[in-house]
């Protein structure tokens, strides 16, 4: 007989099992902690920091912090929400996120989490980095302008597809997504549109070709309800989304 273990999330008791992170337990209990690089199907990565919470006076990422009995976790105080919003603003200005010109708009988790935190402006000075678009693959395109380095495609390709198509190169602000192929292009890699890696991108960086703007404005994933209710975009990508070029 093991007793039920709990911690408190914004004052509400959340049950957890041995080995759970704060995020695991919160997700199971239906409590929303904003996140981008976390996907329960993969090993936590803790890189986007959007899931930061305060535990005993320290900021930790909920997706990597083990749950423990009696923790008092602050997920929604003004200071936490503001810090999250700042992190999102930095993600926006570091890349080129032109929502009006992006097919993912309306079903983009970066956008949805930014809406959830009340982000109305990018606040910081834009980097306007010079990045490329890789349209060499017949079924899938990559727009590096939108990549937020969450490494979900890296993890999916490595752990599920067993292909190691993607990796992150460089350090600090020079970090960027690279493709493991002779020419560095997606077209000459072993990537296929049916891969798991094609269906985990939270933003519009990895997109299927031959379709676009299929959902009218007002009927897109996050048009009516917030991400806290709708859930992750990856959870809505069914297996047939990445169909082969016909």
């Amino acid at each position: 007989m093991s007793e039920i273990k709990t911690f408190r999330l914004d004052g509400v008791a959340i049950e957890f099992k041995d080995g759970d992170t704060i995020m695991d337990a919160a997700l199971r209990a239906g409590a929303y902690i904003p996140h981008l690089c976390h996907n329960p199907e993969f090993t936590p990565h803790g890189s986007c920091r959007v899931c930061l919470v305060e535990v005993s006076g320290r900021r930790v990422s909920a997706c990597t912090q083990p749950a423990a009995t009696g923790l008092d976790v602050d997920n929604s105080s003004g200071a936490i929400v503001e810090e999250r919003r700042n992190l999102l603003q930095m993600l926006f200005v570091e890349g080129n996120h032109v929502c009006p010109g992006c097919e993912k708009s309306g079903a983009c988790q970066l956008q949805a989490v930014a809406y959830y935190t009340g982000m109305l402006s990018p606040h910081y000075t834009h980097f306007f980095p010079q990045r490329s678009v890789d349209a060499s693959h017949p079924d899938t395109m990559i727009d590096f302008n939108r990549c937020i380095l969450c490494e979900l495609c890296v993890r999916a390709s490595r752990d599920i597809d067993r292909k190691h198509v993607f990796s992150i190169s460089g350090r600090g602000i020079g970090s960027h997504l690279t493709i493991n192929s002779p020419g560095g292009k997606l077209g000459d890699s072993t990537f296929a549109a049916t891969d798991k890696a094609a269906r985990v991108c939270p933003v519009g960086a990895i997109l299927p070709k031959h379709r676009g703007y299929e959902q009218p404005i007002g009927e897109r994933l996050y048009d009516r309800l917030p991400v806290s209710i709708v859930g992750d975009v990856a959870a809505h990508e069914s297996g047939d989304q990445g169909d082969e070029h016909d």
């Binding site: 080129n96 032109v98 929502c99 009006p100 109305l120 402006s121 834009h126 306007f128 010079q130």
Partner: peptide, 17 residues
């Protein structure tokens, strides 16, 4: 600042590439 272009440069800022 009203609208995407005033807020973050919007579509015209795509020339910044």
């Amino acid at each position: 600042a009203v609208g995407a272009c005033a807020v973050n440069g919007g579509i015209p800022a795509m020339r910044n590439t």
